[in-house]
Write a protein that binds this DNA or RNA. Sequence first.
DNA 1: TAACGAATGTTACACTATAACGTCCGCTCC
DNA 2: GGAGCGGACGTTATAGTGTAACATTCGTTA
Lengths: 152, 152
Amino acid sequence: MPAIPRPIDPLAEAERLCLARGMRLTELRRRVFEIIAASPRPIGAYAILDVLRDEGRAGAPPTVYRALDFLLEQGLIHRLASLNAYIGCPHPAERHGGQFLICRGCGRVGELHSGLVEATIVAEAAALGFGVETQMVEVLGRCAECTAAVPA
Amino acid sequence: MPAIPRPIDPLAEAERLCLARGMRLTELRRRVFEIIAASPRPIGAYAILDVLRDEGRAGAPPTVYRALDFLLEQGLIHRLASLNAYIGCPHPAERHGGQFLICRGCGRVGELHSGLVEATIVAEAAALGFGVETQMVEVLGRCAECTAAVPA
DNA sequence: TAACGAATGTTACACTATAACGTCCGCTCC
DNA sequence: GGAGCGGACGTTATAGTGTAACATTCGTTA
């Protein structure tokens, strides 16, 4: 899923945004964010907890979930409901609902970020009188590399 | 979410489809389907289990999950990943990915079923070389009734 | 330095889902 | 008719995900 470029330095971007918003990117939150950003695939809360424990840090599930809640609120990460896993956001500066392409082959996830998809959903929902607040699109399939690797 | 009509008789439709496909809609599967179809809101697996137990039926989680797996495979129900809950499908004859409008006010869920949304997602994904297999759209917001009940 | 609130530590538990194995039942094929 | 087979279900145990509730620490401010 390399089609979409990541920010040069996700951590620096996260620090910049938190500073601008007056939010505290503490040591724990920063470390959880780094673990997610460093993972090539979506990572689960308990896998993050394992990493923290390997580093000698004390920790129980709430330790991780509180950090995840903060990062989600700040839009620095997304939660993939279909996988119960978390992924860094490549463009956290603009708040947005998530649109994800999940590859069945390699497990990597790309973010679609299509204004057209978003607008179409809003319009179709509005036609039914439904007011959209947040939207979540998760698409399962095969990425270009995996399609090339296993030709039909 | 009454904008989308339900089939006249979901159970009859389910029986018809299973018969046509040579699949067995057993007593247990039928009952689980009825419970889901009768629920005005998405219902969780353990809530279904509670109903079965209230009816005096023996049961453990696998009892319900196996029935759910069957109904999902047949496209008779959908799973809402963001809620960990299940909902009947209003048009099970055509296989399709789910597009759901989830109301924060009343908890009811409508199915969008927009070919345009689906096609847009497929097109945008294809532009990145990604081949779509199944897609899942879950939209959180407020339905017409709840918007009217609590004016801005 | 006292006081306050935010962040974290800690224990316990709720909720969701599946693995593994046994039993029963209906069907087919000799 | 019975041996064998496969699908559905029963049962026990456990894995995986997430939160409630309360104690403690820490930084900031007054």
